[in-house]
Write a protein that binds this DNA or RNA. Structure first.
Length: 853
DNA sequence: AGCACGCCGACT
DNA sequence: GTCGGCGTGCTC
């Protein structure tokens, strides 16, 4: 292995690190620095993972492998990504079986990558041709491209391509813009040029080569045609290089010279002769230079702060819990503690004080929350305490804001970061504490590659950095509680609410009985309807939960019974009211949508019937029943606009809304003191799914939403409508008895061998036909079984059609691996994949899956 | 992710 | 016959 090589993570789903040589005049970069590297004919940014890696991937310029290439440039002198974060990302890649570059990309702020792009300019010939038309241009795309180009000006290819996509009646399918441009270039109709794109968001040093006085003198002699002893020893390359260099005595970037046939190597030789100097020059602004931007705090959050702050005396339970955590924090070492505290037991206050303890010890804290937009209160409580020593990281920020926050953290200007999942990679140094609030929340799991779980990465990060982890929840995940029970995590319990407020009393309504008496179209039971009326009369607030969006969930023809299904996915379309054009039927997976037909598309009968109800229907129903009530709805449809959820929650907090209807969003950790009634329209929505976590999710959702009631001075009630009043997850959620639920559920998981008792891996193969998907899956599974039987320590289940057999036009087949050793399963997957590298594109592997679709 | 190579359908 | 559609493979 030659020295002066680096292994680099590039932002593509490539399963390995790539090795590049660092040419002589370029200084060796440090791990975590960004480098510009050639990759498949273009230049891309990568992050240095390792310097002089001992074990290079099997590419040593051998006959089979690809030759190692030189990197083009080093963009950072210091690590752009701190080594702790680079290593953490590499661990994520290894654990979750994704490309190292994909994991690194998850840890980077927006705009950190530079990439080569292209720009196009129309020639005069092209302008003439644009009028006549282009021969052989059947699709019309070439002429469209020509006509879309402004004469005499360079246009970015990306912009040209997106204009083509929108144009004449074409469905928005992929436009091979570069191929088109290249084809036009061959005919001399346009010019195409490569440019580096990506905003200059980071400092960048580049090497600049300039001739010395001796060099200029030498070039003068050369140009004069004479020869002397010194010049005699200059090779032709060095001579021509010298002539290029003297054109600009002030110096030229090494990378630019490479384009003029002056290699870094030649420059190094000239430098050795004292004819050229090589220096570093900062060309872009320094990200570590001070550049502070005020943190934006949302309006609703400010309103919430005013309420959140005054409750300052801790209960005895809170005090005891804080004491224990403080003792742990003082040890400055890795530990994980689960804080199981009932809803309203004041966990936020404990987090806040613990963070202060950690800060006083000179260490920093990271607070992870499921979705900041839905819990602005927590962020603003921290803001009130830590002021501008706090940074916020979440997807609702614009790229610029996010980048700025990231740089503040990177420059050690903050002590506390509050953020969502991806903030687990926040570049904090001296990390002493990670808090994972509502650790059971499913939004910690990223549902695309890298499919990591924020909580689990947090635990790994803390382990590597010697920090304390606090996992908090009223309804811990089975995983975490299991870890606490088996002694891997500490466990602290808060059984009482602050100010000894009682938990809401819960009542079940058996909807079978209601249907029997009042017919199956009933939505609100008599009990729930009258309870809502009472609260409205008393000017109290009501929260209604239905974990299903839309107006109605099924449309079918009463004559031929044909349902209205999505043409791309194996689901029925959901009807939505919204939209100027009336009702539309939409697919919640691929977003396909049509105007709701009045007649059956199959038999033309005018009897289209809608059934199954969602939040929109509840909203309408409640409004119809209580015309004076101010009803609003919070679900993904109303919350899509930036700041909309916070605004809506703010209005609810201020009492401008009396009934709030919503999906699981309304169940998240909000604190609305005036809510005295929580209604669950149907507790059964999640129960029917073929998913071993169905009971756990139902229990969590019900317990959480019931926990929104009675948080103020008035006690709260909850009414849960269900078809299965005997189901244990519903029964135990009513009693809010987590421990009993855990015992029952863990017995089930043990019996069935499901997580957390074993590790689980889900694989989904997608293909253009079901047969093709099965073909690939069968072969892959066969290889896995071979390895399983030779002592892999796991079992393989499947393949079988995935619950969503068709998704976005793709046919899907899935399989599972179950086993004690994740390493064993992952090794087997890696090996099976190495045999069939092309399968990787069609195969998604989910380690520790939360949802199986 | 791009981009190149390679194999089948509708046009000069 | 060719152009160009996109399936399959590779990137140090």
């Amino acid at each position: 292995m030659p020295s002066r090589t680096v292994s680099v993570a590039v932002p593509f789903p490539i399963p390995t690190l790539l090795t590049y040589r660092v040419p002589d005049p370029i200084e060796m970069p440090v791990p975590g620095a960004r480098v510009l590297v050639p990759l498949a004919g273009r230049q891309v940014t990568g992050i240095v993972a390792e310097v002089n890696p001992r074990r290079a991937p099997e590419v040593d310029a051998g006959a089979s492998g690809t030759a190692i290439r030189d990197l083009v440039d080093v963009l950072d002198e210091r690590p752009f990504l701190p080594p702790t974060i680079t290593d953490l990302a590499l661990w994520v890649a290894d654990y979750y079986l994704c490309g190292p570059g994909e994991a690194v990309a998850a840890a980077l702020p927006p705009g950190a990558w530079l990439q080569s792009g292209y720009r196009v300019r129309i020639t005069e010939a092209g302008q003439a041709q644009a009028i006549i038309g282009v021969p052989g241009d059947r699709s019309g795309l070439r002429v469209a491209m020509l006509r879309g180009l402004p004469p005499g000006k360079w246009a970015p290819l990306g912009a040209v391509a997106s204009r083509l996509k929108g144009s004449p009646g074409k469905r928005s399918r992929h436009v091979p813009a570069l191929s088109l441009a290249r084809a036009l270039e061959r005919d001399g109709l346009v010019q195409v040029e490569e440019v580096l794109r990506g905003r200059a968001v980071a400092f960048r040093t580049r090497r600049v080569a300039a001739p010395t006085t001796a060099g200029i003198e030498a070039a003068r002699i050369l140009a004069g045609g004479s020869d002397d002893a010194v010049l005699g020893r200059l090779g032709p390359r060095q001579r021509s290089a010298l002539l290029v260099l003297v054109n600009r005595p002030e110096g030229q970037p090494v990378s630019a010279l490479a384009g003029q046939n002056v290699s870094p190597d030649t420059l190094a030789r000239l430098a050795a002769r004292g004819l050229v100097t090589l220096r570093r020059e900062a060309t872009e602004r320094d990200p570590f230079a001070v550049h502070v931007m005020p943190v934006t705090v949302q309006q609703g959050a400010e309103a919430a702060t005013a309420q959140a702050l005054p409750a300052l005396t801790l209960t005895s339970e809170q005090t005891a819990t804080l004491e224990r955590l403080r003792d742990l924090a003082r040890q400055d070492q890795f530990a994980v503690t689960l804080v199981h505290g009932v809803t309203g037991s004041g966990k936020t206050e404990i987090y806040l004080r613990l963070a202060e303890v950690v800060r006083a010890r000179g260490r920093r804290a990271l607070v992870l929350v499921p979705e900041i937009a839905l819990t602005p209160a927590l962020a603003s409580v921290f803001r009130a305490t830590f002021g501008d020593r706090l940074a916020i990281q979440h997807s609702g920020l614009s790229d610029g804001e996010r980048h700025d926050q990231w740089q503040r953290i990177r420059r050690d200007e903050v002590d506390v970061v509050v953020g969502t999942r991806s903030a687990v990679f926040a570049p904090l140094s001296s990390l002493g504490l990670i808090i994972v609030d509502e650790e059971h929340d499913a939004s910690y799991k990223q549902e695309e590659s890298p499919r990591y779980h924020g909580r689990d990465v947090a635990v790994m990060r803390a382990k590597r950095e010697g920090a304390l982890v606090v996992l908090g929840s009223a309804t811990p995940s089975l995983e975490s509680y299991h870890n606490a029970r088996t002694g891997r995590y500490g466990l602290l319990t808060l059984e009482r609410r602050v100010l000894d407020r009682p938990l809401a009393s819960v009542e079940l309504v058996n909807m079978r009985e209601e249907y029997a008496e009042l017919g199956p179209d009933l939505i609100l039971s008599r009990r729930l309807a009258s309870a809502i009326g009472e609260r409205l009369d008393r000017a109290e607030q009501v929260l209604l939960l239905l974990n299903r969006r839309g107006f109605s969930t099924v449309v079918f023809c009463r004559q031929c019974t044909e349902p209205l299904d999505c043409p791309n996915c194996s689901v029925s379309l959901t009807v939505h009211l919204s939209g100027r054009s009336g009702r539309r039927a939409r697919c919640h997976y691929c977003n396909y949508s049509i105007a709701l037909p009045h007649t059956c598309p199959r038999c033309a009968a005018p009897y289209m019937e809608q059934s199954g109800c969602g939040t929109e229907r509840i909203e309408a129903e409640v409004q119809a029943l209580f015309p004076g009530a101010r009803v609003a709805r919070l679900d993904r449809d109303t919350a899509s606009a930036r700041g909309a959820p916070a605004e809506l929650l703010g209005r609810f907090a201020r009492g401008q809304i009396s009934v709030l209807v919503g999906t699981q969003m309304v169940a998240k950790g909000h604190d609305f003191p005036k809510v005295t009634l929580v209604g669950v329209i149907s507790a059964d929505v999640g129960l029917g799914l073929a998913d071993f976590r169905a009971a756990e999710r139902t229990f969590q959702l019900l317990t959480q939403v019931v926990g929104r009631a009675g948080r103020g001075e008035q006690p709260g009630d909850a009414i849960i409508q269900t078809l299965y009043p005997e189901h244990y997850s519903i029964q135990l959620a009513c009693r809010q008895n987590y421990v009993a639920f855990y015992e029952r559920e863990i017995a089930f998981r043990r019996a069935m061998r499901y997580p957390p008792v074993v590790g689980l891996v889900n694989g989904v193969v997608g293909a253009s036909s079901l047969a093709a998907a099965f073909g690939d899956a069968n072969e892959f599974v066969r290889r896995l079984r071979q390895q399983a039987s030779s002592g892999g320590g796991f079992t393989v289940l499947g393949p079988a059609p995935a619950p969503l057999v068709r998704l976005r036009g793709e046919h899907r087949v899935q399989f599972f691996l179950k086993g004690r050793s994740r390493t064993g399963m992952k090794d087997a997957l890696r090996r099976a994949l190495a045999d069939r590298p092309t399968l990787a594109r069609r195969l998604t592997i989910d380690i520790d899956p939360l949802k199986v679709l």
